[in-house]
Simulated assay, not measured.
Amino acid sequence: MSTRPEGEHGSIAVEFAILVPAFLLLIAVAAVIGRQTVAQTAIEGAAHDAARAASISRTADTAQNRGNDAAKSVLDAQGLHCDPVTITVDTSQFARPVGQAAAVTATVSCSVAFSDIAIPGMPGNRTVSATFTSPLDVYRSRS
Rank of each mutant, 00 (worst) to 15 (best):
T3L: 08
R4M: 14
P5L: 10
E6N: 10
E6W: 09
E6F: 05
G7H: 08
H9V: 15
I12C: 03
V14K: 00
V14F: 03
V14P: 01
F16W: 04
F16P: 01
A17T: 04
I18C: 15
L19R: 06
L19H: 00
L19E: 04
P21F: 12
A22V: 12
F23Q: 01
L26K: 06
L26G: 10
L26V: 14
L26P: 05
L26A: 15
V29K: 04
V29T: 02
V29G: 13
A31P: 00
V32T: 07
V32D: 02
I33F: 15
G34I: 12
Q36W: 13
T37K: 12
T41N: 12
T41G: 10
A42Y: 01
G45R: 07
G45Y: 06
G45E: 04
A46P: 04
A46F: 04
A47G: 10
H48A: 05
H48C: 04
H48W: 13
D49G: 03
D49M: 13
D49L: 03
A51S: 09
R52A: 02
R52W: 12
A53T: 06
A54M: 05
S55Q: 07
S55C: 14
S57Y: 00
S57M: 03
S57I: 07
S57E: 07
R58A: 09
R58N: 14
T62Q: 11
T62P: 07
T62K: 13
Q64C: 02
R66E: 00
R66C: 00
R66Q: 04
G67Q: 05
N68F: 12
D69Y: 09
A70K: 00
A71W: 07
S73H: 03
L75E: 00
L75G: 02
L75K: 03
L75I: 04
D76N: 15
Q78G: 04
G79M: 15
L80G: 05
L80A: 06
P84W: 04
P84V: 05
T91G: 11
T91H: 02
S92L: 02
Q93P: 10
F94R: 01
A95H: 14
P97F: 11
V98W: 08
V98P: 14
Q100D: 14
A101G: 13
A101D: 13
V104T: 08
T105R: 06
T105F: 07
T105K: 06
S109F: 10
S109D: 15
C110F: 05
S111H: 12
V112P: 07
A113N: 13
A113M: 06
A113H: 10
F114I: 06
D116C: 01
D116I: 10
I117Y: 08
I119T: 05
P120F: 11
M122K: 09
P123S: 08
A130M: 08
A130K: 11
T131F: 04
T131S: 12
T131P: 00
T131Y: 14
T133C: 09
T133N: 08
P135T: 12
L136S: 03
L136D: 09
R140G: 13
R140I: 10
R140Y: 11
R140K: 13
S141F: 14
S141W: 15
S143Y: 14
S143M: 08
